[in-house]
Design a protein around this nucleic acid. Structure first.
Lengths: 197, 197
DNA sequence: AATTATAGTGAACGAAAGGTCACTTGTCAA
DNA sequence: TTGACAAGTGACCTTTCGTTCACTATAATT
C-alpha cells in the first residue's frame, strides 16, 4: 500500500469535491477517508489546489479524448430503432459511469469559481453533445432517414432535453429509472416528429 | 441607516452565495461589503445558516407565487408570432432580472448540499417550466394552432433547450446576446415543426 | 550490510473561520 | 430629561483550516 496512494487520493478527492465542492472539502476528512493522517497527503501533492488542478487536467484530457477524436464518434444509425438504442447506450454510460457523474457534478459546482471548469462545463453540458449529434443528423439526412433541416438545430433540440434529464439524475438519483424512460420516450417522439413518413 | 440593514444583508448574502457558494462565503467579507464589522451581522441574524435559511424560504415562497398561482400564467398565445414573443418576454425577464439569475446560480451551487435547494432546483430548471408550457400547448392545440400531440412531451421538448441556454447565460454572460438569438431561432423552428400547415 | 529514497506519523504552526460579549452610540417614547 | 432599546463596534474566544517539519518505518539500491 504505497505506490497507488496518489491515485487513491485523486479518486477520493473527486468523490468529495463532487459532493461538497472544493471549498467544502477539507484535507483532514479527505485523508481520513483513505486511512491516512492529513500530513500524508502532502507527500503526494503540494497543496489542495494542486489536487484540484490535476483532476481538472485529467477531466480536460479525458473530454478531449472522448469527444475530440473522430474515431470515438458513434456510427450513423441506419434505422429509427438503431437511433434510439444508440442514444440509450450513450445515456446509460453517462448516467451509470461514476467517474463521469462525478465529473459533471464537480463542473456544476465549480463553474463560477474556476474558468477552466466553466469552459469545460459548457462543452460537457451543451456544445459537445450538440456537435456530436450534428454529425449524426447530417448522416441521417443523407441516408434519407429524417427530413432535411438544419442539423445543428436538430442536434440542439435533441440533446438539450436529454442533458436536462441527465442533470436530474445527478441531482436526484432516485429518479434515474424514471428519467431513463422519459429519455427513451423523448427519443422516439423525436424520430417520429422528424422522420420521413 | 438602520432599519433596512437586515434587507441589505440578505441582498449582499445572495450576491456572495451565488458567486462563491455557501461554504465559500465568509461573514467578515460579507459584512465588510456593507460597511459593517462582522459582529454587526449577528444583531440581525443569529448565524450564517440563518441567513441562508431566510434566503431559501424566500426563494421557495417567490417560486410558489410566480409558478404556483394560476393568475400568473401567461395567456395562451393566438398566433405563432405571439407564441415566439411570449417566450422571448419570459426569457428576457429570467435572464436580465438579477434576483432570478442569482437564485438560479445559488440553487445550482447548493443543490447537492441542501435538500430544499435540490427540490427547488428541479422545479426551477425542469418541472416548473414544463408544467407552465404544458398548459400553453394544450391551449394552442385546442385553438388548432399546433398539431395534436402529447402536450407535456412538447412542453419538455420546448423548455429544456431554452433552459440549457439560460444556464449558458448564467455561466458565460458574455454569450447572452448570442444565446437569446439562438432561443428565438429555436422557438421559430419549434412552431414551424409542430404548427399545423 | 550500509545507504538512500519513499511513504507515512504526529505535533505544531499561523491564518482564517464562525460566533460571543461588554460596551458605545443614536433614536424615540414616557 | 431621562430611560430604554435597537444598531453598531472592537476585542476576544474556540474551532478548523491548509500547511510544515522533524521523525520513523519500510523497501529498494549500492
Amino acid at each position: 500500500m504505497a505506490k497507488d496512494t496518489k491515485e487513491r487520493i485523486l479518486t477520493a478527492a473527486l468523490e468529495m469535491f463532487s459532493q461538497k465542492g472544493y471549498e467544502g472539502t477539507n484535507i483532514r476528512e479527505l485523508s481520513a477517508s483513505l486511512g491516512l493522517v492529513k500530513s500524508g497527503i502532502y507527500k503526494h501533492f503540494e497543496s489542495k489546489e494542486a489536487i484540484w488542478n490535476v483532476l481538472l487536467d485529467r477531466m480536460i484530457a479525458y473530454y478531449g479524448e472522448r469527444f475530440g477524436s473522430p474515431e470515438h464518434l458513434p456510427p450513423v444509425p441506419d434505422s429509427p430503432e438503431d437511433f434510439v438504442s444508440t442514444t440509450m447506450r450513450m445515456v446509460n454510460l453517462t448516467i451509470r459511469d461514476e467517474q463521469i457523474v462525478k465529473t459533471r457534478k464537480v463542473l456544476t459546482l465549480e463553474q463560477y469559481r474556476d474558468e477552466r471548469a466553466r469552459d469545460l462545463a459548457t462543452k460537457h453540458f451543451l456544445t459537445g453533445l450538440t456537435e456530436m449529434f450534428t454529425r449524426i443528423f447530417s448522416g441521417m439526412m443523407e441516408k434519407g432517414m429524417i427530413r432535411r433541416d438544419d442539423p445543428e438545430m436538430l442536434a440542439f433540440a435533441y440533446t438539450a432535453p436529454i442533458s436536462a434529464l441527465i442533470h436530474l439524475c445527478d441531482r436526484e438519483p432516485e429518479k434515474t429509472e424514471d428519467a431513463i424512460r422519459k429519455i427513451e420516450a423523448f427519443s422516439r417522439h423525436f424520430v417520429a416528429t422528424y422522420g420521413v413518413k
